[in-house]
Computed example of a mutant assay.
Amino acid sequence: MYTNYILVFIALVILFSSFVTVRQGTIAVVTIFGKYRRLLKPGLNMKIPLIEVIHSRVSIQNRSVELEFQAVTIDQANVYFKSMVLYSVNNPDEETIKNVAFKFINEQNFMQALIRTIEGTIRSFVASKKQSEVLSLRKDIVDHVKDQIDTVLESWGYHLQDLQINDITFDEVILTSMSRVVASNNLKAAAENEGQALLITKTKAAEADGNAIKIAANAEREAAQLRGQGIALFREEVAKGMTHAAKEMQTADLDTSVILFTMWTEAIKHFAENGNGNVIFLDGSSDGMKRTMEQMMSINVMDTITDKKKKS
């Protein structure tokens, strides 16, 4: 009776071991006595109990790993990288899955090879560049790694989906010197901008002063012309008035010297009002007044002739 129970137990174990569940996104690799046999797709599968063995389960989903390592530039500067690698199985084909399952002893060996390959590729690239160039070559580093790694990963059955360099840093001394260089460049640029602004300000001020001088000169010239025209008109009107007055007095049989005396007294009055305390010597004799008036009349006549010539 005990034998029957044992046989039933063994039958149940064999029956249940014949069913295999494979998770979504995973492919199971089956071997017989250590030799590759077939693949099991996601879902419920059957295998030969005690003979077929699940060698490994290969994930075809995207996987990521973070890297932190150091490189040295051509000018002996230490550069520290923090990056993220995104990779996956190249495709779910049978040959690819076999390659992934049997290329490395285990997953740890594959990860070690992947990390060291990426680090070595970046180090060799950085070793040919100067420290001042590294920060601006982030995209070039990524492109270089992808070009170098893709072929190697495909031979392992994998594909590099993405490589992101999240952080690039240097030693504290280098960071301090870089900050000083940036600060000095900013100060230089600020000084150049201030110099240009000052030059523009000075230029505009000089142009404004020049325009003001031109405007003042033009205004003074126009004012002088107007003053000259006013004096000419005044003299002309005075001459006309004196001529008319002389004719009227001759018609009335009066002495024209009264006109000279009146003008003489008006002139003395004007001198007294506007002389500002200055001493002015005048010839008060009748001959002196007559001579002065004749000179004024002759000057007026000459100005009148000159104005007529200019107008013609």
Rank of each mutant, 00 (worst) to 15 (best):
F19D: 02
V20G: 06
V20N: 08
R23I: 03
Q24V: 06
G25D: 05
T26R: 05
A28I: 01
T31E: 13
T31Y: 02
I32T: 12
F33Y: 10
R37Q: 15
R38T: 00
R38C: 00
L39C: 12
L39V: 13
L39G: 10
L40K: 07
K41W: 02
G43N: 01
N45H: 05
M46S: 12
M46L: 13
M46C: 11
P49S: 03
P49M: 05
P49C: 07
L50A: 14
L50W: 12
I51S: 06
I51E: 01
V53T: 07
I54D: 08
I54P: 09
H55Y: 15
S56C: 03
S56W: 01
S56F: 00
R57M: 05
R57P: 03
V58K: 04
S59Q: 05
S59I: 00
I60M: 03
I60D: 04
Q61Y: 04
Q61W: 02
R63Q: 14
V65H: 11
E66G: 09
L67E: 06
Q70T: 12
Q70R: 12
A71C: 14
V72G: 07
V72S: 14
I74N: 11
D75F: 11
Q76G: 04
V79K: 06
K82Q: 14
S83A: 15
M84C: 06
V85K: 03
Y87L: 02
Y87C: 04
V89A: 11
V89C: 08
N90F: 02
N91T: 13
N91P: 10
P92Y: 00
D93V: 01
E94L: 13
E94N: 09
E95L: 06
E95D: 12
T96H: 05
K98F: 00
N99D: 07
N99F: 00
F102K: 05
F104A: 02
I105A: 10
I105R: 12
I105V: 15
Q108W: 03
Q108C: 03
F110L: 08
M111L: 15
M111Q: 14
Q112M: 09
Q112S: 12
A113N: 01
L114S: 01
R116C: 06
R116H: 07
T117H: 13
E119D: 09
E119Q: 08
G120N: 15
G120E: 13
T121D: 14
I122Q: 02
I122V: 15
R123V: 14
R123G: 08
A127D: 13
A127T: 12
K129D: 10
K130W: 12
K130Q: 13
K130D: 13
L135F: 11
S136E: 14
R138D: 11
R138S: 14
R138K: 15
K139M: 08
D140H: 13
D143Q: 13
D143G: 06
V145Q: 06
D147P: 03
Q148R: 06
T151E: 13
T151V: 11
V152M: 08
V152K: 04
V152S: 03
L153S: 09
L153E: 07
E154A: 04
S155H: 04
S155R: 03
W156C: 01
W156V: 01
W156K: 02
W156I: 01
W156P: 01
G157Q: 01
H159R: 07
H159A: 05
Q161T: 04
Q161I: 09
D162P: 06
D162K: 15
D162M: 11
D162F: 05
Q164P: 02
Q164I: 01
I165R: 06
I165N: 12
